[in-house]
Each structure stands twice: as C-alpha cells, then as structure tokens.
C-alpha cells in the first residue's frame, strides 16, 4: 500500500514552523517511515506532483500570487492543516493591517516600486477551507506529531480550549502575576506551548493567540496594575497574533486611549 503523501507549503512566514517538523529529531525517522514526503522544499528539492493526503500550510497571504497559489494547494489537498500564527491569524506581518502599507514600503525599501504586496496580511482560513489548525509562534512539535498521528491512524485529533494558566499549573509554575507582579497574557492565551515563558519567570506573550471568548478587557486591567502603560498594553496585544480578532479589538481600545 502506498504511503500517504505529505506536502509542506510556505506562504509569508519565517520558516520556523516548518522547521519544527525537521526538529522532531527522534520522531523524524518515524514520520518519514509513515508518509511519503512529497513536497517539502525546506528539506528536499525533489517535488512529487499532487494530489496530497495531508498538506501543512505555513504563512499568511500577503501577495496576489499567494492568494491564487493557496487555492491550488487546497484543490490538491485532501486534508489541509494550517501551522503557526502566520497561517492561523496573519502573523506579525499583520501589523500592516493597522497601518499604511505604502508608508512602510517607502520607509523600508530603497525601491518600493519593486515590492508587490497586498495592504493586508490574512490567515489562510480567510481564503480556503481549513481542516485543522495548529497555533503558535512557532508551533509546538509535540502537537504537530499528535495531529499527524491522529490523521495517519484515524484517531481523534487532539484539541484543547484551555488557557496557558492550565499549563502553568500542570507544570507547577508559581503564577508570575500573583507572586511577582509580572504582566502576563496567559489567562487569555490558548494552551499549547506548555507555558514556556512563565516557566522561566516571564509573562506570557500570547504566541498561541486568544482562547475562545477571551476576557481581554480584564487581562488588560491586570496588565495596567502590573505597571504597563496604555501604549505597552496596545503593543503586547499586537505581536504574533496582532490580527486575531480578540487581540486586535483590545489593542484598538488601548491605542485610542494612548493617543494624546
């Protein structure tokens, strides 16, 4: 029986999430034995034509060409999985969504006329149907392996609606907000990273994006009590998941309040 065909696609992104697959180390050979890696330019220049059983899609849509290309990827893929904050919420490059991209372009590039880009960075799900998503900047490779295992063997893909706080408690971390007065987005951030930053006494930066029905207003109040200015509160919601609706709306409120 032929092995299922796996493809990995890159859109606007830093490649870090695809590298999570190569970072699987001990499990990488097991993965390679279970699938035919048919399209993965980060790993091999060999390209096997589609269709593909599973496509992992990294990155957001920021150009007209990519908006067309994602349609082709969808058409060639039985199961499409978005991986990482860029693909699931537009990524840090979605900061352009609250700014003037022409202005950015003229500041950054000596020849802005060579740069063809859309004025917004959008998640894959705004363009095509997505079957599963893995959050994070970058994704957690354990979640990636669990999802691949479930897809390969017919299990139920793991899902969680818990916050980072749950992971802190499971890891036995002392709460950095309560015990240290450190600003932290953990209560409104989706679990998945294993509470990485709080495990090193840092507040959560929200890499995995908002939980469902995130009470961002209450967390913003907590951030201010921990000493953040309105401008800082705006900035902390505008990072890797700047255009995730819950974070975007909260940032807009504080941006308005921090303007003179």
């Amino acid at each position: 029986m032929a092995l299922p065909k796996l493809a990995v696609w890159k859109f606007a992104s830093c490649d870090g999430c695809q590298l999570s697959l190569l970072d699987c180390e001990d499990e990488l050979l097991a993965v390679a034995g279970q699938v035919e890696i048919a399209h993965f330019l980060e790993a091999s220049r060999e390209r096997v034509p589609g269709p593909y059983d599973v496509s992992l899609v990294e990155g957001s849509i920021t150009t007209r060409d990519d908006a067309h290309r994602i349609q082709k990827v969808r058409a060639l893929s039985r199961t499409l999985v978005t991986i990482g904050a860029c693909a699931t919420s537009g990524g840090v490059q979605a900061l352009r969504n609250v700014a003037d991209v022409d202005e950015y372009r003229s500041i950054v590039y000596p020849h802005p006329e060579y740069v063809a880009t859309l004025d917004r960075s959008t998640p894959i799900a705004q363009h095509v149907r997505v079957d599963h998503e893995l959050r994070g900047c970058p994704i957690n490779r354990v979640q990636l392996l669990e999802l691949l295992a479930a897809l390969l063997h017919g299990g139920r893909p793991p899902r969680t609606t818990a916050s980072v706080c749950t992971e802190c408690k499971l890891r036995d971390n002392v709460c950095v907000v309560v015990a240290h007065g450190t600003p932290c987005l953990g209560p409104v951030t989706a679990a998945g990273c294993g509470a990485l930053c709080p495990s090193y006494h840092r507040g959560c930066y929200g890499c995995f994006g908002p939980v469902a029905a995130a009470n961002t207003a209450a967390v913003a109040e907590s951030l201010r009590e921990c000493g953040m200015s309105e401008a800082d509160v705006t900035r902390v919601f505008r990072t890797f998941n700047a255009d995730a609706p819950a974070f975007r709306k909260e940032a807009e409120l504080h941006d308005a309040q921090s303007q003179p």
């Binding site: 279970q34 295992a149 479930a150 299990g155 916050s163 408690k169 709460c175 209560p187 939980v211």
Partner: peptide, 24 residues
C-alpha cells in the same frame, strides 16, 4: 478570566480528563 486557576489551586477540586494518544 475563566482561566481555571481557582479550580487548579483548590484543594478539593478533583476533576480530571483523559486523553488518548497514538504515536506516529
């Protein structure tokens, strides 16, 4: 915040969930 901290630090809360996982 609905973050669940109160239940996780509570000495009487006993709820657990089970998760099944298969290797690749």
């Amino acid at each position: 915040l609905s973050c669940g901290n109160c239940t996780l630090v509570c000495p009487t809360c006993f709820c657990t969930t089970v998760v099944d996982a298969t290797d690749v």
